[in-house]
Amino acid sequence: MTSITDKNIIDGFANEMNEMHNKQQKAYADIIEASAELSQSHRYFVTSALDAGLKKRDNDEMLLDILEAFKKDLPHKNALLKEKQHAIAEMASDIDQKEIQKLAIIQKIEKLKEDQTRRKELIESQCKVNKDRLKNLQKARIVFQENLGMDILTIRCIAQDVNGEQLQFVFRNINPTDMNSTYVITMGIKEDRVYQIVSSDPALECLPDLERRLPETNNLSAFLANVRKQFIS
C-alpha cells in the first residue's frame, strides 16, 4: 500500500483540486456572465415596457383630450346640423312652391292658347259673316242703284265700337223738286256682328226704332226700303 506521504500522490491530489477549483471558478464565471446578460436583457425589457407604457399613456391622454373637445363641440355641431336641416326643409318647400307656380303658369299658358284659338276662330267666323254680308250688300247695291238711284260708299271706321269699315247709303230721286239731292245714312257692324246705325242726314226720329228691329229681321234690304220711305215722308 502506497503511503499518503508519497509526493506523487500529493501532487496528483493537488492538481485535481486545482482543476476542480478552476472548473468551479469557470462555472461561477459562466453563471455571473449569464446573470449579467439576463439582468441586461431584463433592464432592456423593463425600459422598453416603460417606454411603451408612457407612450400609451400619452396617446390615451391625447385621445381623452380629443374626446373632451368633441364633447364640448358636440352641442355646437348639433345646432349647426339642425340649422342645415331647417335650411334644407325650407329649400324643399321653396322648390315645391316653385313647382306649383310652374304648373299654374303652364295651365295659364294652355288656357291662353285655347282662348287665342277660340278668338281666332271667332274672328275668322266674323270675317266670314262680314264677307257674306258685304257680298249681299254688293248685290243689293246693284239693285238699289239701278232702281232707286242709291249709291253705297265704303268709308273708314270712326266709332270705336264698330268693327271694320263703315258703309254710307246715299239715296237720290227722293225730292221731286231736286232729284239729285242726297239723303245719307251711315252704318257699321259691331264686334258682336250686329248692325249699328252711326248717323243719318237729314236726321230721322224713327231711326232708333228701325235700328232696334233690324237685328230681329236681319233683312237689310227691307231696312233700307223703310229708311227711304222715311226720307220721302
Rank of each mutant, 00 (worst) to 15 (best):
K77D: 13
L80N: 12
I155N: 08
A27W: 14
Q138V: 02
M91S: 09
Q166C: 10
I109G: 03
G149M: 14
K77T: 10
F144E: 14
L220W: 09
K135C: 05
Q145S: 01
I123G: 06
E191A: 05
D178Y: 00
I174Y: 11
H76P: 02
F144C: 08
V162C: 05
K131N: 12
M1P: 10
I32T: 11
N163S: 07
D178N: 05
A49Q: 12
S35G: 10
L224C: 03
I100T: 12
L167W: 11
V46H: 08
D65R: 15
L220A: 05
R172S: 04
F13P: 05
Q145C: 01
K23D: 10
E211S: 04
K77M: 09
S93D: 08
E83D: 07
N147W: 00
N219D: 15
F171M: 07
K82W: 14
G149I: 10
F45E: 15
I123P: 00
P215R: 01
D30P: 00
L224Q: 09
Y183A: 00
D178M: 03
E146P: 02
D58Q: 14
T2I: 10
G164A: 04
A29S: 09
F223L: 08
S3Y: 13
D51Y: 11
E205N: 04
Y183M: 08
S199P: 07
K98V: 15
L204C: 03
E114S: 00
T177K: 07
N59H: 15
N163G: 02
C127D: 14
E37L: 01
N175R: 04
E68D: 06
Q168H: 03
A79K: 14
T117E: 14
D73Y: 08
Q126F: 12
T186F: 06
D161P: 10
V198I: 07
R43L: 12
D30V: 01
P202C: 02
R43I: 15
E110N: 11
I106W: 14
Q25F: 06
S221Q: 08
